[in-house]
Design a protein around this nucleic acid. Sequence first.
DNA 1: ATATTAAATGTATATTTTACATTTATTTAT
DNA 2: ATAAATAAATGTAAAATATACATTTAATAT
Lengths: 229, 229
Amino acid sequence: MGRIEYKNYDRFLLAVDCIIFGFDGTGLKALLVKRGLEPEIGKWSLMGGFAEKDESVDSAAQRILYRLTGLEKIYMEQLHCFGDVGRDPGGRVVSIAYFALIKIDESSTELLNSHNAKWFDLKKLPSLVFDHKAMVKLAKERLQQKVSNHPIGFELLPNKFTLQQLQGLYEAIFETAFDKRNFTRKILSLGILQRLDEKEKESSKKGAFYYIFDKKKYKQLESEGIKLI
Amino acid sequence: MGRIEYKNYDRFLLAVDCIIFGFDGTGLKALLVKRGLEPEIGKWSLMGGFAEKDESVDSAAQRILYRLTGLEKIYMEQLHCFGDVGRDPGGRVVSIAYFALIKIDESSTELLNSHNAKWFDLKKLPSLVFDHKAMVKLAKERLQQKVSNHPIGFELLPNKFTLQQLQGLYEAIFETAFDKRNFTRKILSLGILQRLDEKEKESSKKGAFYYIFDKKKYKQLESEGIKLI
DNA sequence: ATATTAAATGTATATTTTACATTTATTTAT
DNA sequence: ATAAATAAATGTAAAATATACATTTAATAT
């Protein structure tokens, strides 16, 4: 019926590219792959792929993330549509960029290896294909903004973590140091952290308590969008 | 060269839909048009169109806004890519939504009429085609968020405006009343408003001073993203 | 001169943010 | 058993910001 109305308009290849963030305790990291097709084959690139006719763009992003990491039910958010004419010299491709937050130790090492994937510190990125550098830059800005109002930082940490690890994450994301006392007080005042009896003893003799976060209150705050930073 | 690498992937129609906001002194308004093609011809719709091969998606959005309003150099921002499979019963169309802020009296009345366009109060929207209601909802949320940190509200007001008009705009956007004294103090403390000697005398005997905003300081704040609300 | 109307303005209190140094728990060495 | 070493845990005062709330002022119309 209506379908024929549309037939004369231009059609586009639709790519999906994922900025996959991770945190290893030192710096904020992004997962990159060696591009496997021309043009620019062999150069570092975001993980991406083409959307298919019978899937939503969101599903395509999930599929592509899964293909690389083996992970499902991951925090992922649409970032931006990159639609400049010459952005991909290989053709007129419009790309929808997504960013994902994963726990760095939970992704499948074999899968990463088979894709020639590697974690890069955001401050030491190699040169990237096309407009992928701009995508990473925008994703980092959005992550900062998002993490200021939503407690999604926990997506990047192991299930149990110390307050210093949490602070380290925020410091990595914002590239700035926070006062330990003020940070601790503020985070604890949100009431979304639960202290375990267990301690982390690697990095000090006294040991630092592990915390987990209270998923119920977390959900509450997430929907309300409480100010964190 | 590389071009042939891509040839086997699915291609998509790319639509651009614009949420055009305006403010008439009473409520926040959106500009809607009567859809001119099947399916759902004759129903209220956002202004939209198909992207073309030789233009960026951003340019397509500008073109479509211009076609309806006759306006150029308008504040416009990409909102979101809507990519669900069945969102448009007329075909597999992925839509990139943009939102624009215009001064309601500056758009060409003849153009609006020729497109059967009409301003609707956001609180009294008619039913809309496809997923356009969701687009408007998201746009309104983004506008609230954006206006909290960036002084873009001025894009919706005439060049000179009173403090009460400005407050009215913010109250319309947030659907909440602000304390006049506190609002005035906060806005003036930003130092981006410049008071004129001229007064608006329609709505009171005393008259209210007109203000314009200081573009230089505005640019500064815009880039810094200062907290407004 | 008086009444009318909406604009302009100030202050005290509560809350949040910031800056900053000492004490505590545990392990290791003597 | 005691002392030394290490990083964790903790409190408080000052500054800045946000909130709540009522009176005075400028201009016009009578």
